[in-house]
């Protein structure tokens, strides 16, 4: 639901750092997204093509890396990694779990030409 404004934010951060590095062109953008983040890759890519035109980031390729979520069971204190959907604690079966990480959306790095 927020993809356009999130994509604008990606562009803004990338352009800021490209300028600082005196880049002629940004060729690749590496994004890291938590498994539980609701960001949809395709719709980010869709907006990206539109809004990156005529900027230093034009034609830059977006790379999405999904990282697993980490959960903590509040019943038995077991910490576990989630690769797919939300599941109860694999140790004791409790549904009382807390998300430790998995909602992140970071711009990790960019590849530039000087």
């Amino acid at each position: 639901m927020h993809e356009l404004s999130v994509t604008e934010s990606v562009l803004e951060i990338a352009c800021k750092h490209a300028e600082k590095a005196q880049a002629k062109k940004v060729t690749d953008i590496y994004l890291v997204i938590g498994r539980l983040s609701s960001i949809v890759d395709d719709s980010v890519s869709f907006y990206w093509e539109m809004i990156s035109k005529n900027t230093v980031c034009e034609d830059a390729k977006l790379h999405f890396k999904r990282i697993p979520a980490k959960l903590l069971c509040l019943q038995c204190s077991h910490e576990y990694i989630l690769d797919d959907e939300l599941t109860p604690c694999p140790n004791c079966g409790s549904a009382r779990v807390k998300v430790i990480s998995g909602n992140e959306f970071n711009l990790d790095s960019i590849e530039i030409q000087r």
Binding site: V6, S9, A14, D108, S109
Partner: peptide, 19 residues
């Protein structure tokens, strides 16, 4: 990492969260 790879690690926020 090549010298043209710039490490950033910045949180991407939507406009609402930024404000």
């Amino acid at each position: 990492m090549s010298e043209n790879r710039i490490k950033i690690v910045e949180k991407v926020m939507n406009a609402n969260d930024r404000i």
